[in-house]
Amino acid sequence: GHYRIRINGREFEIRGISEEEIRHLEEALRNGADEKILKEIVDRLRG
């Protein structure tokens, strides 16, 4: 998958993330885990 997200007015492209991972992120966001989720995304993109 290849997705664009906007955070604090800046747009980011996220590549190589699966539909299942996105559902997991959405679930966590609904549970209020904003900073933790951003850290997970950044860590994943770093490799």
Results as ranks from 00 to 15, higher is better:
residue 8 N to A: 07
residue 27 E to T: 12
residue 27 E to V: 07
residue 7 I to M: 02
residue 37 I to E: 09
residue 36 K to W: 08
residue 29 L to D: 01
residue 30 R to I: 09
residue 3 Y to H: 14
residue 20 E to W: 07
residue 43 D to W: 01
residue 3 Y to E: 11
residue 5 I to P: 02
residue 5 I to Y: 01
residue 7 I to K: 00
residue 37 I to H: 08
residue 17 I to A: 13
residue 11 E to K: 01
residue 30 R to A: 13
residue 20 E to T: 09
residue 41 I to E: 02
residue 27 E to W: 04
residue 23 R to L: 10
residue 18 S to V: 03
residue 17 I to N: 02
residue 31 N to V: 10
residue 18 S to M: 04
residue 29 L to R: 03
residue 2 H to Q: 04
residue 16 G to C: 09
residue 32 G to T: 04
residue 15 R to Y: 14
residue 1 G to K: 07
residue 1 G to Q: 05
residue 8 N to F: 06
residue 39 K to W: 15
residue 10 R to K: 15
residue 28 A to W: 13
residue 37 I to P: 01
residue 25 L to D: 00
residue 40 E to K: 08
residue 8 N to H: 05
residue 2 H to F: 07
residue 10 R to E: 15
residue 13 E to T: 04
residue 6 R to A: 08
residue 46 R to H: 14
residue 7 I to T: 01
residue 6 R to D: 04
residue 34 D to F: 15
residue 26 E to H: 05
residue 42 V to I: 14
residue 47 G to W: 02
residue 25 L to Y: 03
residue 26 E to R: 04
residue 46 R to G: 15
residue 20 E to D: 09
residue 28 A to M: 14
residue 38 L to H: 01
residue 41 I to Y: 07
residue 31 N to L: 09
residue 18 S to F: 02
residue 1 G to L: 07
residue 3 Y to Q: 12
residue 45 L to T: 04
residue 4 R to T: 12
residue 41 I to K: 02
residue 12 F to K: 00
residue 24 H to Q: 14
residue 41 I to V: 06
residue 15 R to Q: 12
residue 33 A to H: 07
residue 5 I to F: 03
residue 14 I to Q: 00
residue 28 A to Q: 10
residue 29 L to M: 10
residue 40 E to T: 11
residue 25 L to F: 06
residue 35 E to L: 11
residue 25 L to H: 00
residue 37 I to L: 13
residue 3 Y to W: 10
residue 33 A to K: 07
residue 29 L to I: 14
residue 11 E to V: 08
residue 35 E to C: 13
residue 6 R to T: 15
residue 4 R to L: 15
residue 15 R to A: 10
residue 31 N to E: 09
residue 1 G to R: 05
residue 41 I to R: 02
residue 46 R to D: 10
residue 16 G to Y: 09
residue 4 R to S: 03
residue 47 G to S: 12
residue 20 E to L: 08
residue 21 E to P: 00
residue 40 E to N: 08
residue 1 G to E: 08
residue 47 G to A: 14
residue 13 E to L: 07
residue 13 E to G: 01
residue 34 D to V: 15
residue 44 R to V: 07
residue 5 I to K: 00
residue 14 I to W: 02
residue 16 G to A: 06
residue 21 E to C: 13
residue 44 R to K: 09
residue 40 E to P: 03
residue 19 E to K: 13
residue 6 R to E: 11
residue 21 E to M: 10
residue 24 H to L: 13
residue 34 D to Y: 14
residue 30 R to V: 07
residue 47 G to R: 10
residue 20 E to S: 11
residue 34 D to H: 14
residue 6 R to S: 09
residue 41 I to L: 11
residue 2 H to G: 14
residue 2 H to M: 04
residue 39 K to Y: 14
residue 5 I to N: 01
residue 9 G to A: 01
residue 6 R to N: 12
residue 7 I to E: 00
residue 32 G to W: 06
residue 23 R to N: 09
residue 15 R to M: 09
residue 42 V to R: 03
residue 8 N to K: 02
residue 38 L to N: 01
residue 27 E to G: 06
residue 20 E to Q: 13
residue 24 H to I: 13
residue 11 E to T: 05
residue 18 S to R: 03
residue 13 E to A: 02
residue 46 R to A: 12
residue 37 I to M: 10
residue 11 E to M: 07
residue 22 I to E: 03
residue 24 H to P: 03
residue 24 H to Y: 14
residue 4 R to K: 13
residue 21 E to V: 06
residue 12 F to I: 14
residue 10 R to L: 15
residue 43 D to G: 07
residue 34 D to W: 15
residue 9 G to R: 01
residue 13 E to M: 04
residue 30 R to H: 09
residue 26 E to T: 06
residue 43 D to N: 07
residue 5 I to M: 01
residue 12 F to C: 10
residue 4 R to G: 03
residue 35 E to Q: 06
residue 16 G to I: 08
residue 8 N to R: 03
residue 28 A to H: 14
residue 20 E to K: 09
residue 4 R to Y: 06
residue 38 L to I: 11
residue 13 E to P: 01
residue 44 R to T: 11
residue 27 E to S: 10
residue 4 R to H: 15
residue 1 G to D: 13
residue 26 E to P: 00
residue 24 H to R: 11
residue 34 D to L: 14
residue 43 D to E: 09
